[in-house]
Nucleic acid binder design. Sequence first.
DNA 1: GTCATAATTGACTATATAGTCAGTTATGGA
DNA 2: TCCATAACTGACTATATAGTCAATTATGAC
Lengths: 225, 225
Amino acid sequence: MESTGQKRIERIDTSVNKPAIPPSRTEKRAAKTRKKLLTAALEIFSECGVDAAAIDMITERADLGKGTFYRHFTDKYDIAGVLVEQAIDHLIETLRESDRQPTTTLQEVLEHFLNAHYAFFRNHQDEFILLFQGRLLLKLERQATDRIEAPFSRYLEEIERQLMPFLGEKKLDWVRIRRLACAVAGFVFGFFSFAMIGMEPQDIADSIKPLRQSFVKSLTMFLTQ
Amino acid sequence: MESTGQKRIERIDTSVNKPAIPPSRTEKRAAKTRKKLLTAALEIFSECGVDAAAIDMITERADLGKGTFYRHFTDKYDIAGVLVEQAIDHLIETLRESDRQPTTTLQEVLEHFLNAHYAFFRNHQDEFILLFQGRLLLKLERQATDRIEAPFSRYLEEIERQLMPFLGEKKLDWVRIRRLACAVAGFVFGFFSFAMIGMEPQDIADSIKPLRQSFVKSLTMFLTQ
DNA sequence: GTCATAATTGACTATATAGTCAGTTATGGA
DNA sequence: TCCATAACTGACTATATAGTCAATTATGAC
């Protein structure tokens, strides 16, 4: 049942710090607790999957009381939504770091894409798993859909944004750009996921270089054909 | 708790029909019931995800009593395992249909791969979703791991088998072949999954042809470089 | 038709998990 | 120090789901 009225006990909001007000000790304590919950939840979700995870697992892992969870989040899908947003932020951030280096050709941009995704896969494996298991929920008419779908769109848009400058010569076909974004995102996530089944970590690492090479060539061809 | 002794009530086994014995009406009834359960479960799993699905949802959808479920399967993950095996069988079957047409070049084989995957995505969408949500369970230390992982390995091996003949000139590097299989599987599954978020169905269909073209070129390059 | 056997049923019990709230502990201000 | 307020706690209740089993219905052999 959805409560249309306000909650009796207001939840804590440490998500956005009001600017120019130094955080009190109380606020810092709450923020630290929230952080502990987020960290624990990410681990649990990546181990068990969001649906199979229980609140108790999270609070247990965070070494906090169960009631504390409900002062910070409404339910599992609430905290999962926050984590997905964070993960996408990290992925986009990683993409922008690549973007900071001067790039003059489409090939270079695409190489940066692949590098950035590989870095993300290596350095944020829990988030990688979270994103990849959450992604498919879309098709599945569920409540949390928008909360989950929105960050993924942001991600696709970031890829598109970085591509734009190099497509000036050709017509800026929206479908073609989105198609490319899907191809890049899909290839990288899909490859790493399958690689996790079929290959040893060292083999995965060794595969990156030649794959990058031919995938970049292929995409360049695709975009400029 | 794992019961090491035998169950008090033996479950029905209609999975493999003993050869040369015509099925009785009783057997056919049981087989039909089992089929109804499998069909309902596939729908439910692809709508809600395996972890979020409940037995009641499945028996409700199949219009059967709950107890019936337990005469045919031990639990959710048991029936999910059967469904994953079936889905992989369909995918492999689709791959073999492509293979039946005479292929003389690596490019043709790769084109058939892409065609077959696209056909599977179009004609078995529920199974596509099931496979794709199940796939990641691997990383996540769970009980059903082997049951789920084995079919995926079969799938990768089928891809490898079809590629073999065209790699005779080059050294048969096991890692390289598995890498290619991961690339094909990952690209196709990954692309379609992201396309489901970011694109309209018609745009997806329109994307197949040009994508196939450049992806095939890319993979050929990759294998023969 | 009658009986033995097998499949099916769904109400029932056991269990696990969600979500609550009165009580406890920490912080901030006087 | 003492009080007001906010964060935290975990035992508790409500609910949902898993899994069971005695009763029911269908089938097969005679």
